[in-house]
């Protein structure tokens, strides 16, 4: 098991965004998280990647515990060095890409492996070029993010995340900031990664994509997991009234 989350609670002030959420991701699995906006699915991802600190619950990657909650309900994160180690297990692709505008495409991909992971530069360069080929961007290695389309930028962001060789890759609405005609090229890349058995969690509004690519679908609403299961079951034969309503609204 790559990721295990138990009893996650998170509030912003009086607003309880995550109410006792538990989920797990196995190796090679593609999990899609769907749900209306404000359902807490992005917050769940941000908690899983430690961009937000949780109020209660346990999170562990590859069996290594990152945060635990004691009997008194106090969530405690492991010390800094251990957390840094655990952070290496995952990558995150943002809705807004968040490429470094002052770095070229190649440097965006290479900089963290070279300066954070301290890997050999030439080796990283070869891998980065290979990733760019995979993203169909090998001729844009020297371009700067501002010279690329949104779809191209998002593919660079995916390559940047993959260059660190994570065990699991999170996607936070990876196509929401893109023009409709550009979403295809990004989804194609994610589909390709799924075929290669890359472990992924994708928060998305692209229902046909979620249905076609995922091994498992989680439907969230108002901070709880309403329904979870095989995509054909959740999309084709939902058991919960809220799921039915959400999917019906979506098809209109």
């Amino acid at each position: 098991m790559i990721l295990q989350m138990n009893g996650i609670k998170k509030s912003f002030g009086d607003l309880e965004v995550l109410k006792d959420i538990s989920m797990h991701v196995d190796s090679g699995e593609v999990v899609s998280v769907i749900g209306p906006s404000g359902s807490g699915k992005s917050t769940l991802l941000r908690c899983a990647t430690f961009l937000e600190t949780i109020d209660a619950g346990d999170i562990s990657y590859m069996g290594r515990s990152a945060v635990t909650t004691n009997a008194n309900g106090v969530a405690t994160y492991v010390h800094h060095a251990e957390l840094s180690q655990i952070k290496r297990y995952f990558g995150l692709v943002f809705q807004q890409f968040n490429l470094f505008p002052h770095y070229s495409v190649l440097k965006n991909i290479m900089d963290a492996p070279v300066h954070v992971q301290k890997r050999h530069k030439e080796e990283v360069r070869a891998e980065a070029m290979e990733l760019l080929r995979k993203m169909n961007l090998e001729n844009r290695a020297d371009a700067y993010p501002c010279q690329l389309s949104g779809g191209q930028q998002q593919r660079v962001a995916i390559a940047r995340a993959l260059a660190l060789k994570p065990e699991i890759l999170f996607f936070d609405e990876p196509t929401s900031a893109l023009d409709p005609e550009l979403t295809g090229e990004v989804l194609k890349v994610i589909r390709q990664l799924a075929e290669e058995k890359m472990t992924m969690v994708v928060v998305t509004h692209e229902m046909p994509f979620a249905r076609a690519v995922s091994n498992r679908v989680i439907f969230m609403d108002k901070g709880v997991i309403v329904e979870e299961g095989d995509p054909e079951q959740v999309f084709g034969d939902p058991t919960q009234e809220r799921t039915i309503q959400f999917l019906r609204n979506y098809q209109r």
Partner: peptide, 14 residues
Amino acid sequence: IPVGQYEAAEILGY
């Protein structure tokens, strides 16, 4: 500087 720049850097391990 957008907060996303800090978050991207954090996720990448800087």
